[in-house]
């Protein structure tokens, strides 16, 4: 099959995927509208059009962008800190049995403890601005730790033998074998963890009524029964979460291609 023909098929598949996604999104909007019409009470369910109008109005205020970006900054900070710490911890625990024995119960406790308990504790321990960062960090750490830990264990021993025979340096062993082998596990963990970081981070902002945050706005929506604001801010969280995931995946993908950690033809 010629390269042009391949490109043509890929292009048509891409268009088909976009069409399917657009149709699914439209279907969900119609369903939302139907539910809204059936309930017929804006206090309970707001129409998509009303949410869009409110989002447009909010988008014209500096406060909307300031609050959104500050929340984004906090969640990103917690996410990055959690993913790096989780990955490093997995490496250390794979390498040293004592570290594994020491940290395993702590990771299990973090995984099993209700997020609300951590938020309340964090409110006691930390200042308001740091609580969402800490909570996002706690949500991300065990997910990344577990996946990277598993990824290291799944590295093909036959490739490690090849490395041993050819006397490849330790740096090469890490960059040519370990990182490319673990990368899919790390990325899968990050995708899952990002959503969790947003959910838990915003929950921390709501409970802590963090200054200049989306969570604070959600809290006020609840207090003043402004359902349209609740929906608008929720949509904002969803959009920002998806955007952050896309940007993160794109950035890691670019970097890993540049460093030859992954195939460059996909």
């Amino acid at each position: 099959m010629s390269a042009d023909k391949c490109r043509e098929i890929l292009h048509s598949q891409k268009l088909k995927n976009i069409a399917i996604k657009t149709a699914v999104a439209a279907l969900w909007l119609v369903l939302w509208q139907l539910v809204c019409m059936a309930v017929n009470m804006e206090l309970l369910v707001v129409s998509p059009a009303a949410v869009a109008r409110r989002l447009l109005a909010l988008g014209q205020t500096a406060e909307f962008w300031s609050d959104s970006l500050r929340s984004l900054g906090r969640i990103t900070e917690g996410f990055l800190f959690g993913s790096v710490t989780g990955a490093l911890l997995a490496v250390v625990c794979r390498r040293y049995a004592f570290a594994r024995a020491f940290f395993s119960p702590a990771v299990t406790v973090i995984k099993s403890t209700p997020v609300a308990s951590f938020i309340i504790l964090a409110l006691v321990w930390l200042t308001g601005q740091h609580v969402p960062v800490f909570i996002a960090f706690l949500m991300v750490l065990p997910v990344v730790y577990a996946n990277v830990y598993q990824g290291i264990g799944e590295v093909d021993p036959k490739l490690l033998e090849m490395v041993a025979v050819y006397r490849m340096s330790r740096l090469q062993k890490v960059s040519k074998i370990y990182i490319p082998s673990i990368l899919p596990y790390f990325m899968a963990a990050c995708r899952t963890a990002l959503g969790m970081a947003w959910k838990a981070g915003v929950a921390a902002e709501v409970i802590g009524v963090t200054k200049d945050s989306i969570g604070r706005k959600l809290y006020y929506s609840k207090i003043y029964l402004e359902t349209v604001d609740l929906f608008a801010w929720t949509v904002t969280v969803i959009v920002m979460s998806l955007l952050l995931e896309k940007i993160f995946v794109w950035a890691v993908d670019r970097l890993s291609r540049k460093l030859h950690l992954t195939r460059r033809d996909k």
Partner: peptide
């Protein structure tokens, strides 16, 4: 001190091209 091995199951790195597989291992 230095031994090379033609493995039965190839043992090529899937994320590297043919040329990169050779340069990375053989230096």
């Amino acid at each position: 001190d230095r031994v090379s091995f033609v493995f039965q199951e190839y043992r090529l790195l899937p994320w590297l091209t043919a040329a990169e597989n050779i340069t990375a291992a053989a230096g």
